[in-house]
Design a binder for these strands. Structure first.
Length: 399
RNA sequence: GGUGGGAUAUCCAAGUGGCUAAAGGAAGCAGACUGUAAAUCUGUCGGGUUUCACCCUUCAAGCGUUCGAAUCGCUUUCCCACCA
């Protein structure tokens, strides 16, 4: 383990729950935790540059092994000097292993999965096969066959060069039964062990590996998986797999998993989340989150806002007719480039007119919103006011 | 003035006797979005009501043929093309 270049120090803990604040250090600098990791899946924040993102105060971003493996390929990224250099991002970075694509390319994404829409899109599944060795995909861009194994994922992630890398796992779908979830969990454990072995072969101290806790919605499996990860030499740990079919169930699973995992390690919650979910995650001891929500929402016309300031949804849809002549900024109190300079009416117009600037400005706002949110969360933990603040958000969110 | 081609819902545009309140688009109205095949997808989209049902008014206008017409015939109005 590359202990000398990486560290995680817990500096504050809450007396009333598992919330804690700390510092996660990497060769490309440190971030305070809890923190949010922005998604630059294919090596780009959709619609804004890394400089724009940095200006919001964001500290860490992520890219995806599967996507970059397909295009432009790990060797091209390496030739560019690695992800940091290529993306012009000097802070910490993480790469996802591609395990999520076993799920998303096999089932079509979280919303489709939970809502039972299995025919997405055009009934073409890009996941061809999953076996003990790994997963086989048909590339959605050129139709070629893509093999992804723990070894390949680690080799690719080595070339991509992010600071934090994830073990290769299988993200199980929500509809999977207990037997399948248990079988897949054990196989993921074997994949994670292979990931660790492969990682150690070329460990030069510039990357740190996270293990992933699986087990779906089953408490005993989560416990077993948490123990497996704890017993292995991972720098950090992430909670992955199916988190249930509702926000309530997810919160319960995260809370329960938070109780059985190793509290000394930096703990990441994969793919979450929405504002309320982040408060809940922090309460259960999560240190970092990643989610496409802020950036995806922005491109779809949504601006993050306090849940109680809109209609309880936690965002406003600037596409709506009610903003046509609303010349106030999205948020009077927001200091982002978008809110300081532009009206809701203008953003509304940009979206209507299909101007890319609309998505750009909303992405900047949402990124800044997340940065401030995480800042508020850390401050509340450090000041000991976290439980009260958390409660406010829970009350203000719609059931 | 002559000949030919047109006129379909907010716009563009299918439809040439019943299964048509009328395909597709677009625009509009709303919803969804949680390790991004996503600047995407879904619903709605003539009016009304007791809204998984029923009623009313529609395919330029009028008259007619027919059990039944956006679809067939005649007349009128307006557009387009070519010829005088």
């Amino acid at each position: 383990m590359a202990a000398e270049n990486f560290s995680f120090k817990i500096t504050h803990t809450s007396d009333h729950c598992r919330a804690r604040s700390g510092i996660l250090s990497t060769p490309h600098g440190s971030i305070e935790t809890p923190n949010f990791i922005f998604c630059a899946t294919k090596g780009a924040m959709k619609s804004i540059s890394t400089a724009d993102l940095a200006a919001t105060g964001a500290g860490i971003i992520l890219s995806n092994t599967y996507h970059l493996m397909l295009q432009p390929g790990p060797d091209v990224v390496e030739k560019n000097g690695g992800l940091h250099r290529m993306l012009n991002w000097n802070g910490p970075m993480l790469t996802d292993s591609g395990g999520f694509q076993i799920f998303s390319l096999g089932h079509g994404g979280v919303a489709n999965e939970i809502k039972g829409r299995r025919n997405f899109p055009q009934n073409v599944k890009s996941l061809l096969k999953i076996s003990e060795n790994g997963a086989v995909f048909r590339s959605h861009s050129d139709g070629s066959i893509i093999h992804l194994t723990p070894e390949i994922s680690m080799q690719v992630q080595r070339k991509l060069g992010a600071d934090l890398v994830l073990a290769f796992d299988e993200c199980t779908p929500f509809h999977a039964d207990r037997d399948y979830t248990a079988m897949a969990m054990l196989r993921s454990h074997r994949w994670e062990s292979r990931s660790l072995s492969e990682f150690k072969k070329s460990d030069d101290g510039n990357q740190a590996l996270y293990g992933i806790i699986q087990g779906g919605v089953y408490e005993d499996l989560r416990r077993e998986s948490a123990e497996f990860v704890a017993q292995n030499d991972f720098f950090g740990q992430a909670i992955g797999g199916s988190l249930g079919g509702s926000a309530e169930q997810m919160h319960a699973i995260v809370r329960m998993t938070g109780e059985v995992l190793d509290r000394e390690r930096p703990t990441h919650l994969l793919g979450i989340g929405k504002i309320a979910d982040i408060w809940n995650g922090v309460k259960s001891g999560i240190d970092t989150f990643d989610c496409v929500h802020p950036t995806r929402l922005a491109l779809h016309g949504g601006a993050l806002c306090m849940p109680n300031s809109s209609d309880g949804k936690g965002f406003m849809n600037l596409h709506n007719a009610r903003f046509r002549e609303d010349i106030s900024p999205i948020d009077e109190s927001c200091d982002c480039h978008c809110c300081r300079n532009f009206s809701r009416s203008y953003i509304h117009h940009l979206l209507r007119a299909n101007e890319m600037l609309g998505g750009y400005l909303l992405t900047i706002h949402n990124a800044r919103f997340m940065v401030k949110l995480m800042d508020d969360i850390r401050t509340s933990i450090q000041r000991g006011t976290f439980p009260g603040e958390c409660k406010k958000w829970e009350i203000s969110q719609k059931p």
